[in-house]
Amino acid sequence: MSFKHALSALVVAVLPFAAQADEVLKIAASPVPHAEILEFVKPVLKKQGVDLQVKVFTDYVQPNLAVEEKQLDANYFQHKPYLDSFNKDRKTHIVPVADGKVHVEPFGAYSKKIRKIAELRDGATVAIPNDPSNSGRALVLLQKQGLIQLKDPSNILATAKDVTANPKKLVFRELEAAQLPRALDDVDLALINTNYALEAKLVPTKDALFIEGADSPYANFVAARPDNANAPAIKKLVAALHSPEVKKFIQDKYKGAVVPAF
């Protein structure tokens, strides 16, 4: 066999293996529960030819910027009110992936100083997230407990300036969401996103003084850029996340602290 023929044969032999190379899908996620859920579906996607690579972030800003700047393909950490606010403020273009809702993390109130909300003193300091969507979520939850009254109870972007009645004269302290668990020693009450509560070893269903119901509209979903939101690999990811196995994983592992939204 001539060298030319031998080289051609080698190329033909190698081509099938090259064609079988996994497609890499890079996705940003918060450590808990998002990254844990993604790690659970990795083997399923591997069998479908998708190499899922999870990049963990501990804040709510970089996951969107990394997708917008095409450093990563998609992210899984946020709800729609937060994304809408982020896109508006940052002039970004991230979109929810169709049917991409995975779970709800019921938002809760925690304290190291009181055991029930009736013990909350007048003039107490209450820590809430400083991003518009989550601060509004916290204030709406406080209103449902009868602690404050908002100008518009349905305004999910309400701020402390929208409080029209505050009989206990609560003092609101706005902090970055990730900092809230660490503030528990310094405040009377803190309203904390469940992913950060779980990272801090808090058990929402046991430790929260009050918590959102499972009917919360703040479902977390997979998000991407408009140019790749319908990419086959992302569709495979969403399908894997919506499997009965993932539903059981969420229910068994988080025991009500995280609730399937599919």
Rank of each mutant, 00 (worst) to 15 (best):
M1F: 14
A13K: 15
A19D: 07
V24M: 07
L25K: 01
K26W: 03
A28W: 03
A29W: 07
H34Y: 10
F40T: 07
V41E: 01
V41T: 08
K42D: 11
K47P: 01
G49D: 04
D51T: 11
V54P: 14
D59M: 03
P63M: 02
P63L: 03
A66P: 05
A66I: 05
K70E: 02
A74N: 00
N75Y: 12
P81V: 02
T92Y: 13
V95M: 02
D99R: 10
D99K: 09
K101I: 05
V104E: 03
P106M: 04
P106E: 03
F107D: 07
G108R: 05
Y110N: 05
Y110M: 07
Y110W: 00
S111E: 05
K112G: 00
R115C: 06
I117D: 02
I117S: 05
E119M: 14
E119L: 03
V126I: 13
A127V: 13
N130I: 00
L141S: 14
Q143C: 04
K144Y: 02
G146I: 04
G146C: 07
S154N: 07
A160C: 14
K161P: 07
K168H: 06
L170G: 15
V171F: 09
E176P: 09
Q179Y: 09
L184F: 04
D186Q: 15
V187S: 10
L191A: 11
T194D: 08
G213Q: 02
Y218W: 06
A219G: 11
A223H: 04
R225I: 00
P226R: 06
N228F: 13
A229V: 13
P232E: 07
A233V: 03
L237K: 04
A239C: 00
F249K: 14
V258Y: 01
F262I: 11
